[in-house]
Amino acid sequence: MKGLVAPVLGAVGFIGLWWLATVAQLADPVLLPSPAETFRDTVAAFRSGPLGHDLLRTILRTVQAFLIATAIGVPLGIALGAKERVYRSVEFVVDFFRSTPASALFPLFLILFGVGEGTKIAVAAFGAALVILFNAAYGVMNARRTRVLAARVMGAGEARILWDVLLWEALPQILVGMRAGISLALVIVVVAEMFIGSTDGLGQRVIVAQSLFESGLMYGVIFLAGALGYVLNLTFLLAEKRFVHWSGR
């Protein structure tokens, strides 16, 4: 409980400053609505508007992209990590596309998948898969050599070592990759919702609110997207603590 005091104070302080800025009219009210107005508009958009649906769509797309990325990135990363020489030969390509802004790939994916749901999910999955693959491969390659030797001397063959040792050794790093992957998927999905043929989603809502000068709602959606990213990240942090209790020990 005590650990909550500081972050709550920080958040209250932030809203207080924001409120003071609006009271002092430091900015045009259209550009900077008050916290109360933002709250009111956001709640109204939830009650009678499409915001609930938008939030759900964004979560759904992000989770779909993340699941595809995990299904591809984890097994492929482990397989590549177990054969270090193979990984070294594809490392440049992985690193290159990992460093390429996913938004630069939108046009390409539009050609490949057309204007629709598939494209948004595919771009996000592509970006997230590379991050997850890279982390899984490094997790396996950085497995403690002594543990591999210990398993070997106890009669474990190569397949057994992969399953009994390397996978477990890589698990903390795999979860780090998944956490980074879902955050990246959310970023790409929100951008994709803004620019590639969407009618819903948080990205769509924020850009529509902006063009209609509904600045209260715009700020509300931004905070909602932020909260979503924060919760996803926190969920994975808690999962890491729970499922890889031995990490770093």
């Binding site: 403690r144 002594t146 543990r147 030797l149 210990a150 001397v153 040792v165 477990w168 890889v244 031995w246």
Partner: peptide, 16 residues
């Protein structure tokens, strides 16, 4: 059948 005890027990046991 052989047994082997490593110097670094921290890195030889399976912490999971």
């Amino acid at each position: 059948r052989v047994g082997y005890v490593f110097q670094n027990y921290r890195e030889a046991l399976f912490p999971w």
